[in-house]
């Protein structure tokens, strides 16, 4: 399978990339890791006239701690996240999620920025970023703007990133002591999209009361989804079996999965509840460790 013809540009600065985006507008697509875009182009689901390859732009591959914020450059590869010790020490959820994204060779190419900018609720990072309440830095020729993750996803393959902009950085607030995070997805085989996936981050105070919680769901809705009622069911409570069961029930009711080869709607509603219970327990164990 061979993509339809296109022109290829390989800018070496963001300014140059913005100039190209201005010139080509909607005809251009940004090429990052390319492991969603190139397969779509090979299948001719996507036929952009121009690819703007941002892989040669320096300054987008950092993972740095800046005060109480972890900053991840858009071009950081999944395989780099897998081995990012400081990031994983604060957010063990990244060790959970990267291991489940595709396979090692794909992770050598796939980038965190591309995973989010693709705007696909079947990707894994959207749910993780919802759980972590990340902020997304979007850059254009007039400067940067920062968008909370809750305002980032607009629809299937649609995000807040405009045709003349580039997602450049992900910023994640670091919560204090007593915080833990966890992710798991059920997949039929390595490299498949999730049948269902759940990301949880929570903070427990000295009494075991939940003082902060974020929950994101993978591939259970057309747009990446926060399990708001599940969060509300946990916030301000101690993690008793009843409280956790209520959170699971809410997620199961509120998600909108579709019947497909990975399972029936009913099965997925059941599965999200099971996974949410497990991830709450795992995040809580890590919070108390």
């Amino acid at each position: 399978m061979i993509p339809a013809p296109f022109d290829y540009e390989s800018p070496t600065t963001l300014e140059e990339a913005f100039g190209l985006l201005d010139r080509y507008g909607d005809e251009a697509k940004i090429l990052s890791g390319g492991h969603s875009l190139i397969p779509m182009m090979k299948l001719r689901f996507a036929s952009p006239e121009v690819l703007i390859d941002i892989n040669n732009i320096p300054g987008l591959s950092h993972i740095t701690k800046d005060g109480n914020t972890m900053k991840i450059g858009a071009l950081v590869r999944e395989s780099e996240i897998e081995h990012a010790k400081e990031l994983i020490a604060h957010f063990p959820i990244f060790a959970d999620v990267t291991k489940l994204i595709a396979d090692p060779s794909v992770r050598n190419r796939g980038t965190i920025g591309g995973n989010l900018a693709h705007g696909d609720a079947a990707n894994d990072h959207p749910a993780v970023m919802l759980a972590l309440r990340a902020n997304i830095v979007i850059s254009g020729k007039d400067g940067n703007r920062t968008v909370p993750i809750d305002e980032f996803f607009h629809g299937f393959y649609m995000t807040e990133v405009q045709a003349n902009e580039i997602l450049t950085e992900i910023q994640i607030p670091i919560h204090g002591k007593g915080t833990g995070s966890a992710y798991h997805k059920m997949e039929r085989k390595v490299g498949d999209y999730a049948t269902a996936g759940v990301a949880v981050q929570l903070t427990l105070d000295a009494n075991g009361t939940v003082t902060y919680v974020g929950i994101g769901l993978t591939n259970l809705s057309p747009v990446p989804m926060r399990a708001e009622r599940s969060e509300a069911a946990l916030l301000g409570k101690k993690l008793t079996d009843e409280v956790i069961a209520e959170a699971a029930k809410c997620a199961s009711e509120d998600c909108s999965p579709s019947d497909d080869l990975r399972g029936s709607e009913e099965y997925k509603r059941h599965l999200v509840g099971v996974l949410l219970k497990r991830m709450i327990h795992k995040a809580a164990e890590r919070a108390m460790a």
Partner: peptide
């Protein structure tokens, strides 16, 4: 389709699937 790995090569020492790289 980036699934099977038969096209795996090393690019700057990293394994990649050469059917999904231009």
């Amino acid at each position: 389709t980036t699934s099977c790995g038969a096209c795996t090569i090393l690019m700057d020492g990293k394994s990649v699937k050469s059917c999904t790289i231009l």
